[in-house]
Nucleic acid binder design. Structure first.
Length: 490
RNA sequence: GCUCGUGUGGUGUAGUUCGGUCCAUCAUGACGGACUCUCGAUCCGUCGACCCGGGUUCAAAUCCCGGCACGAGCACCA
């Protein structure tokens, strides 16, 4: 300790801080949560929430709650399969399952109990105003007449709401705040509303459902959540919920925010809009490589680790950001490069015949150029080969890992095996080792297809290969006729 | 309109709490080079930023005031 280099201390400020910044407040027993709406599987945007929260939980040896916010049966109704999908995707992204998994729809008795308590204590009231009428009242900072009714009248209406005797839109429970509050969002905000449509998990048992701000607030308290990390669009939620916590005498968790994220390559996708597009047949399913879903990224060959590194690198800032898949791809490349065997794909092929009668044996080409994967691909060369027509701009070429050749017309002859000059090196495949192949490239909402031939050497479905001079792609299917591969990235 | 938040290279990000050590960090990108029998990997180099205007100070990305820009909330969605 005595020999600290002063210049190193001075330079401390210059170095970029690694990892996430410290969590505020008491961090002795951290409980965090990730709370998606199960109206579809997770998308790339959700992965930030999973990664950041689970990383904090790991750093502080805390707990993670995976909570399904499924209290809307109408506008964004739950998708029954999504619960299991999200559990899997959560585990894939964070590398471990959540410590606690809770579905809001299973916890309805708790929410309804607190709602009743709130009315009994005059902390909330049943409001029979129409939504548009209340909007005006909120703007004018006046009180609606529902506000002053007796507790008995309120409880009576509450029972009728719960029993399904009031139609949807006929009443709402509000948290009593102060109608003169400067922030209009906080003025007597709605906590529960009536929805008569059945819930896929609990059926039509409940007629009154809590809204996010109420449900989330109660559940965070029930679970002992210490830190909430949410989008900054939910800043007013924090303020609303703090009022509720004060009313109940609870202490609100520490709250951190992130800004909006836009992924350049994907337009304005929302879970609901994707769901609609799939139903319309615009996409095959949630795994369609053109979609920004975790399922699609996984299917295409992205590693969870690349998302973890990417989001950790971005960290937690309130800035609205535009990110590019290129950055995620570069993280992914560096992770998978050493794990992927090389193969050859020749697009727009031209077949060349060997002129001379030379007897050629097999050629051994490494599975990985840096020997990260040992072994060779053994090629038996027949009398013809395939090269890319775009490489045919000169007669003097070198077939990579094999020989210098001279081309005339559709014939070629071997000039030398050793590399004796600097002629262009191209990739190629012997015709007898080639198989028809379709390369599908997701570009925005299109799926461009290139036809060519693939090196038919120990190909495995689901495996990602690096195609020489091209980039990474994953084998989607293989049959007697052809192979289909899906483009990943450079 | 009201309320809240954010402004550092093309894109992200560090530094802003407690002004100097910042002619501003790192990654990604673009460009160039070396090496390699891939347009991959590796290595080297170059490019490029503190929203604007005042103020305080010996000294401001950092503090103060005033603008401007962008985003979000004000849903019986989450």
């Amino acid at each position: 300790m005595e020999s600290i280099d002063p210049s190193a201390v001075n330079r401390e400020k210059h170095r970029k801080n690694e990892g996430l910044r410290d969590l505020p407040g008491d961090t002795s027993e951290v409980v965090l949560r990730f709370a998606p709406n199960p109206n579809g599987p997770l998308s790339i945007g959700h992965s930030r929430g999973v990664v950041i929260n689970s990383k904090y939980a790991e750093d502080y040896e805390g707990k993670m709650v995976l909570r399904f916010d499924d209290t809307d049966t109408k506008v964004k109704p739950p998708l029954i399969e999504a619960y299991a999908w999200i559990e899997e995707e959560y585990e894939w992204l964070s590398g471990r399952p959540a410590d606690v998994i809770v579905k809001a729809s299973e916890r309805m008795p708790i929410y309804l109990k607190f709602a009743r308590k709130m009315i009994e204590k005059k902390l909330g009231y049943v409001c029979r105003c129409k939504a548009e009428d209340f909007r005006k009242i909120r703007e004018e900072k006046t009180n609606c007449h529902c506000r002053d009714r007796s507790t008995e009248e309120n409880l009576h209406d509450w029972e009728r709401m719960v029993d399904g005797k009031i139609v949807e839109g006929g009443a709402v429970v509000r948290v009593r705040t102060d109608m003169t509050l400067p922030n209009p969002a906080l003025r007597d905000w709605p906590a529960l509303r009536i929805q008569h449509s059945p819930h896929p998990l609990v059926g039509d048992r409940y007629k009154v459902w809590p809204l996010l701000d109420f449900q989330s607030a109660i559940e965070d308290h029930e679970q002992g959540v210490t830190h909430i990390i949410r989008g900054k669009d939910l800043m007013d939620s924090t303020r609303k919920q703090t009022i509720l916590y004060d009313n109940f005498g609870w202490t609100y968790p520490e709250t951190l925010y992130w800004g909006r994220v836009k992924v350049n390559e994907f337009g304005g996708f929302s879970t609901s809009s994707i769901r609609k597009s799939i139903e319309e047949g615009k996409f095959s399913d949630w795994k369609d490589p053109r979609l920004p879903t975790i399922k699609a990224l996984k299917e295409r060959g992205f590693e969870a680790q690349s998302l973890r590194e990417f989001w950790s690198d971005i960290g937690l800032t309130q800035k609205d950001i535009s990110i590019s898949m290129k950055t995620i791809e570069s993280f992914n490349s560096s992770i998978i490069d050493s794990k992927c065997e090389r193969r050859t794909f020749v697009s727009n092929p031209v077949e060349l015949d060997l002129e001379t009668e030379v007897k050629i044996g097999g050629v051994k080409i490494p599975r990985h150029p840096d020997k990260k994967i040992l072994g060779n691909r053994n090629w038996e060369i027949g009398k013809s080969i395939l090269i890319q027509s775009s490489d045919l701009d000169t007669e003097h070429l070198r077939l990579k890992d094999f020989a210098n050749i001279e081309i005339s017309g559709t014939n070629f002859s071997i000039h030398s095996y050793d590399r004796i000059d600097n002629r262009k090196i191209i990739h190629w495949i012997p015709s007898n080792l080639s198989k028809k192949c379709i390369l599908a490239i997701p570009i925005k909402e299109e799926l461009a297809e290139t036809t060519g031939f693939i090196e038919d050497f120990e190909l495995r479905i689901g495996e990602v290969y690096q195609f020489e001079r091209l980039g990474f792609a994953r084998v989607e299917s293989i049959d007697d006729e052809q192979v289909r591969i899906v483009w990943l990235h450079n």
